[in-house]
Amino acid sequence: MIQFQGVHKWFKKLHVLNGIDLHVKPGEVVVVCGPSGSGKSTLIRTINQLEPINEGSLVVDGMDLCSKKTDINRLRAEVGFVFQQFNLYPHLSVLNNITLAPTKIRKTPKKEAEEQAMALLERVGLAVKRDAYPTQLSGGQQQRVAIARALAMKPRIMLFDEPTSALDPEMIGEVLAVMQDLAKTGMTMVVVTHEMGFAREVADRVVFMDHGVILEEAKPLEFFKNPQHDRAKQFLKQLLSPMH
């Protein structure tokens, strides 16, 4: 579904992705973790080409991202992306946030798009907020709307870039629950997160990155019980008991 082969990426002189090889199978949920500045956000952003890669090959859903023939807008329509900062459109109501892309790109009739949007809002538990504006919602609610907005395009892959990092602790659960439900439907998901509880319960695989390199790839249980790499051990230790 997503195939990285020898992917390199530089920001000026900074080598952010240093030879990434990663294969995500259809229906798989992959959690990417690592210390800040490890390149995990950049990694996930290359998948829908918010960040173009400089070297190597990247094939997503059968489309070669390096080929000039690939219609990048079409690819992005098939790949949902959820941001750390939600990035809802503040000038549009919740409903219009969700229906914008389907009506403009899929040419879905307005009424049908609204019905689908309502079904999605139902699914993330926010049907009552259809006419609210993003600023009137809590962070957790905004993020759930953002997930509904991404799902409205009926994507085949969903990418989450630290979806709960900007949330107050009591709101993290509601967002993770939505993501867990989504994983159960068999959606292919790549999730950058520090929520190790989520990784343990939902992920099929955990990928640990540092300095632009994938240091470790393992099933969640193995990774948490018995991390191989020193830096992974240290990372987990700091994550689980930040005071020490």
Binding site: L50, R76, F81, Q85, N87, L88, A101, I105, A146, A150
Partner: peptide
């Protein structure tokens, strides 16, 4: 904010 455009193009908007 840049995130607005990123959100829009991520849903496939040109």
């Amino acid at each position: 904010p840049k995130g607005q455009v990123e959100a829009a193009i991520s849903t496939g908007l040109k």
